[in-house]
């Protein structure tokens, strides 16, 4: 599986930054079957997610570090916020799945 893009939006307003992220991933639980062949689909889900803020001074601050089980919905979506941040700073997302695939994506905080 090729690493899929991560869509992130980070918007600064009134001293805080709201982050929305959407990761394209099938999140296979290991209990599904292929609808055509009936063959079992092996488990393949994101088990680790890290969201970081890279401040203007280059320092990295961890925002979220998550351990997922198979019960997170396909194409995982997260919406959260943190105090501070600033337009021009970077929010970076990294994930790893149970198959050892990894991907990351980042966005610049907008006003």
């Amino acid at each position: 599986m090729s690493p899929d893009p991560v869509r992130i939006e980070a918007r600064f307003l009134d001293g805080r930054t709201e982050v929305r992220l959407l990761i394209r991933h099938p999140m296979h639980t290991g209990r599904e079957r292929d609808p055509d062949s009936g063959a079992p689909i092996p488990a393949l889900y994101i088990d680790t997610l890290i969201v970081e803020r890279i401040a203007a001074d280059g320092r990295t601050h961890e925002l979220l570090q998550a351990d997922f089980g198979p019960g997170i919905a396909r194409n995982p979506f997260h919406h959260f916020a943190f105090g501070g941040g600033a337009p021009g700073e970077t929010v970076r997302v990294r994930w790893r799945d149970t198959g050892g695939n990894e991907a990351s994506g980042e966005t610049v905080i907008t006003a």
């Binding site: 805080r16 995982p76 959260f80």
Partner: peptide, 18 residues
Amino acid sequence: GRWRFGEGVEAWLALRIK
């Protein structure tokens, strides 16, 4: 899942589950 919140992160989270 388990989510660890970094410093300054607001005490809420929205997501989708199965």
